[in-house]
Amino acid sequence: MKRASFISLCLLGAFSTIPLAHAAEYTLPAANSRIIGQNQTYTVQAGDRNLQTIARRFDTAAMLILEANDTIAPVPKPGTVVTIPSQMLLPDTPREGIVVNLAELRLYYFPKGENSVQVYPIGIGQQGLETPVSVTRVSQKIPNPTWTPTAGIRARSLANGIELPQVVPAGPNNPLGRFALRLGIGNGEYLIHGTNAQDSVGLRVSSGCIRMNAPDIEKLFAQVAAGTKVTIINEPVKYAVEPDGKQYIEVHRPLSQTVDENTQTVPINFSPELGTLITNAGGDHTLIEKALNRRAGYPVGIPAGKAKAEKATTESVLSVQNSTKGAAMNAEDAGEAVTQ
């Protein structure tokens, strides 16, 4: 597990001109509107050791910054002006409970009875150990969790020369952090939890669990009740027609299926329903294709075309149904093996 050194954290504080931001919160738009936030710019400082450092300033994901800035270096030089993608379209799901969009590495929380949405960056499952698409519930809240590695995790670690203990007690060395929300998927092995490897948030590195920054999971944990609905989707493309007639498309790089796959050029999978929406909206065909190729990770305005877009609008991408399957709640003991 990688951990930022105390010296690095001190340097970050010394050179910081913008306070660390946590839990980006937005007022909900009208029911027939989905666009929230505004993009920002940031000038890289001498103490910004990598994109993860910058991402934590704005409580976003390093991969989202990479998408927005296209050719930026993993360690950008001081003085570089960086676009922070803090404008987004809400996922096309009911505004209820927790919504996770794996493709954009974001978790949305809709507090019950409030006209707001909180948006958090997350780390998700790596290739071959993907976080499952599902509709489930929070089955258990676990403060100060212990970590019981699964047999698979122990075997993979042993193959790399690391022998994991059967149980890691609660504390600063626990990879689950201080708070965990167990999900009712499988045998309860999937969690939303903190981490002692802060640079892993915003990346695909877990064994299927959803990782959050320590301040973020602490805030979410305090608000979420057992039984809260959790919807996990994988939608790299979002499209909205706003009440004023303006159209927006937000395209993320799809999750790679293999280590060698180039997510900037691989065909994007999205549902026939979304393809029909894009076609019927009649937006400018050329700009839609440009956005699908650029994959900037933030909303791009699409003016109306001279005529309705033809089906050919989506011919350059694969069109498949995003499956969402239910899962029964399964409240397990806190000591049960989890994926991390």
Rank of each mutant, 00 (worst) to 15 (best):
P303V: 09
A61T: 00
D260E: 15
T93C: 07
T314M: 07
T258W: 11
S200C: 05
N69Q: 05
R34V: 05
T83K: 15
V168M: 12
N69E: 11
G202L: 04
G194I: 00
P267N: 10
A226S: 10
A68N: 01
F179E: 04
A214G: 01
W147S: 03
T80Q: 05
R204C: 08
N69W: 10
V133I: 14
Q264M: 15
A296T: 14
L287M: 09
I232V: 15
N187L: 11
S16Y: 04
A21D: 07
P143A: 09
D59L: 09
C209L: 07
N196A: 12
Y120P: 01
L203D: 01
L318H: 14
A226I: 14
G188D: 06
L158W: 08
G335C: 05
A73D: 15
A46F: 13
P272G: 08
G208L: 06
K112I: 02
T314Q: 00
V133M: 03
S207H: 14
C209G: 06
A309N: 00
T276W: 06
I162V: 15
G283I: 01
R295I: 11
N322M: 13
G13L: 12
K246C: 01
S256T: 04
L9M: 13
I142A: 00
L9I: 11
G326T: 12
A291T: 08
G202A: 09
T60C: 10
S8V: 04
I18F: 13
V44C: 03
G13F: 10
S323Y: 10
A23N: 14
S207D: 12
R95S: 03
L274S: 07
I72N: 06
P94C: 08
I210Q: 00
R95Q: 12
E315L: 09
N32L: 04
L64H: 03
V241D: 01
L66N: 06
P175E: 10
